[in-house]
Design a protein around this nucleic acid. Structure first.
Length: 585
RNA sequence: GCCCUUGUAGCUCAGUGGAUAGAGCGGCUGCCUCCUAAGCAGUAGGUCGCAGGUUCGAAUCCUGCCGAGGGCGCCA
């Protein structure tokens, strides 16, 4: 049980004894630290005008409790709670002796499918993929840490109209390839006729051509349909394009420290589409409209008019709504998902609203299965427009990583310590630090808002940044190593003797809420904020309490234990955020 | 036109219906013979877009208006 929930129980009981609901006992960190560590505002909610006397009555019931230093009514009916130093130290000591460091565990284990990353065939990873990948990965880590069963699936974009475009693009460039021979049934080359680099150049060209030339657009749609219907040459070419894209993207994700449990795509569910549509027809919601097969998802009480969802184009080809629905069916029936989180750009909100509605109305997803779009805003440049290179192109993920790594390299060289680091270690540190800056910068912003990616800010590494957090852990490790070398022993935590030490202990007691809140709101930025607070708390403590020169071994041992536990908590939190820590920096 | 997101310090952003709205950057002032200065301490900086409403209490909830970004059937 977390400290906050324990306090909620204690004050809940006080309210209950006074004939009121336990829920009034809810406690949260004080907004006025000079008045208390925690506060309870239940009296104000329960009694309105006469809250002050109720607060006094509640306080009377807690006053004798030795766990508290002070419990005082204040203002119109606040209750300010200060823990006794003894109890605070005891509580932190218990967290520190817990194998899970006091981190919370889910009451009920659920199977959470996290759909994130958003890779597409032939589209190299760029800045637009970063948020989905980083936020989705953090959420997956947080849910797994809570004890949930987590399945990470990037849901590869490999079946839509862009595949038809690529096929005709390749055909226009290399018309002699066997993939395009009518009637041929096999014997296709085992090597891809085209590299990922060529594919990624090809795609924007064909897409532009299809937008301006109706004839080629028609050809692309026909190729898409023929691919979906199983034309052998197209399937063989498709398989090659999928393979080269996937290999490269797996490597990109790996560089970010992100791995998936599955690597399913839209095509994975292609062969259940037919059956699914027949099943959906049973709901009476499926109809023909202008030659296309659609699901009516609008309800009379809707404020906005929801357009019907397209299941099949008028030529019969499937769309992404189709494969999204089939994927829901697969995740529910085959994987046994309890919750599916889609970490996808907020601009797709309408799409998901329609897909989720259709899945409910046609029975593909029972109501006990959660379907949630975890949307996020666009990454803009300093000018407020979507982030682009000076030339106007999108920034590749690799370029972005190189940018932050280069800055970290420069910063590292300024550090006198590195003279005896090997060049390999310097390079590894630079990449780890650069990635931390990149990830933390992204994770620290609430996911719903657009945010400005300012390259200068991301490479500064001072203040509230990923490297600051890493620095905290590195200093703790270095400290503990020195202590061990001098045979200094860690010892039982004693009550805090300095303000910064007490603040750090108090901050550490709030860790369970930081994790559970990030999970319940699907918002890792709460955890990022909290992690920063812990790091700040440690640095101040480190500054105020000079541990290695402390003459009193009891005090010193206690401080070493506090430093060790703080280091463990920071490491755990950084792991949940997907941020690695170098040995030294 | 309808819908979604958003508006908080010079800049970038936090903020769980509660008291005196917080960080970082940037500005100014200090601190390395002392556990890593990627650090610490201090200081200045705010009509929480505007107007109403609900409430004992609103940056937070509701309504309207204004600004920004985005979405609105055969792309994803």
């Amino acid at each position: 049980m977390s400290l906050i929930s324990l306090l909620g129980e204690v004050f809940g009981s006080a309210f209950e004894e006074l004939g009121l609901d336990r829920s009034y006992g809810k406690v949260f960190p004080s907004q006025r630290p000079e008045l208390g560590d925690f506060q309870c505002n239940g009296a104000l909610a329960a009694a309105g005008q006469s809250a002050r006397s109720l607060a006094t009555a509640v306080v009377d019931r807690a006053r004798e409790d030795e766990r508290f230093g002070d419990v005082l009514p204040a203002g119109p009916g606040f209750v300010n709670i200060r823990l006794s130093d003894r109890f605070l130290a005891q509580w932190v000591a218990e967290m520190a002796s817990d194998p899970r460091l006091g981190a919370p565990r889910a009451d009920e284990v659920r199977h959470v499918v996290v759909d994130y990353g958003g890779p597409n065939v032939a589209k190299p990873m760029h800045v637009g993929h970063l948020r989905s990948t980083i936020i989705g990965d953090a959420l997956a880590r947080i849910f797994a840490h809570l004890g949930h069963r987590v399945t990470r699936d990037p849901h590869f974009g490999d079946w839509g109209t862009q595949m038809g475009m690529l096929i005709i693009g390749v055909q226009e460039r290399l018309p002699g390839l066997p993939y395009f021979e009518e009637g041929r049934q096999g014997g296709y080359p085992s090597e891809s006729p085209i590299s990922l680099g060529e594919l990624s150049e090809l795609y924007p060209e064909v897409a532009a051509a299809c937008a301006s030339d109706p004839e080629r657009a028609r050809a692309a749609r026909r190729a898409t349909l023929e691919l979906q219907e199983g034309r052998p040459g197209y399937r063989a070419l498709w398989k090659q394009m999928v393979r080269v894209s996937m290999e490269s993207q797996r490597a990109d994700f790996a560089r970010l420290g992100v791995e998936f449990d599955l690597w399913y795509g839209e095509s994975t569910v292609a062969d259940r589409v037919e059956k699914m549509i027949r099943r959906m027809e049973g709901s009476g919601r499926v109809s023909k409209s202008e030659g296309a097969t659609v699901v009516e998802v609008a309800e009379p009480e809707d404020q906005a008019s929801l357009p019907p969802l397209l299941l099949r184009k008028s030529d019969g080809a499937a769309l992404y709504a189709t494969t999204d629905l089939a994927t829901i069916e697969m995740r529910v029936e085959d994987l046994g998902a309890d919750v599916i989180l889609y970490v996808v750009d907020a601009r797709q909100a309408d799409h998901f609203r329609g897909v989720f509605r259709a899945a409910r109305l046609t029975g593909l997803a029972p109501f006990r299965v959660g379907l949630e779009h975890v949307g996020f805003g666009t990454m803009n440049g300093p000018d407020g427009r979507p982030f682009r290179t000076r030339e106007g192109g999108v920034v590749r993920l690799g370029e972005l990583i190189e940018m932050v790594t280069a800055a970290a390299r420069v910063r590292l060289e300024e550090n006198d310590l590195v003279v005896d680091y090997s060049s390999e270690e310097r390079e590894a540190i630079a990449e780890t630090v650069g990635l931390a800056a990149l990830k933390f910068g992204d994770l620290a912003t609430h996911r719903a808002s657009n945010y400005v990616f300012d390259p200068e800010r991301f490479v500064s590494f001072s203040g509230k940044t990923g490297p600051y957090l890493q620095y905290g852990v590195v200093r703790i490790r270095s400290l503990l190593a020195r202590a061990a070398a001098e045979n200094l022993a860690q010892a039982a935590l004693i009550p805090p003797s300095r303000p910064a030490e007490r603040d750090l202990m108090l901050t550490l007691t709030l860790m369970p809420e930081a994790i559970s809140r990030s999970a319940s709101e699907r918002a890792p930025h709460h955890l990022a904020e909290y992690t920063y607070r812990v790091a700040v708390g440690f640095t101040r403590f480190y500054d105020q309490c000079h541990i290695l020169s402390e003459p009193d071994p009891v005090q010193q041992g206690s401080w070493l234990t506090l430093a060790r536990y703080t280091g463990e908590v920071l490491s755990m939190l950084l792991e949940l955020l997907g941020i690695d820590v170098p040995e030294r920096m």
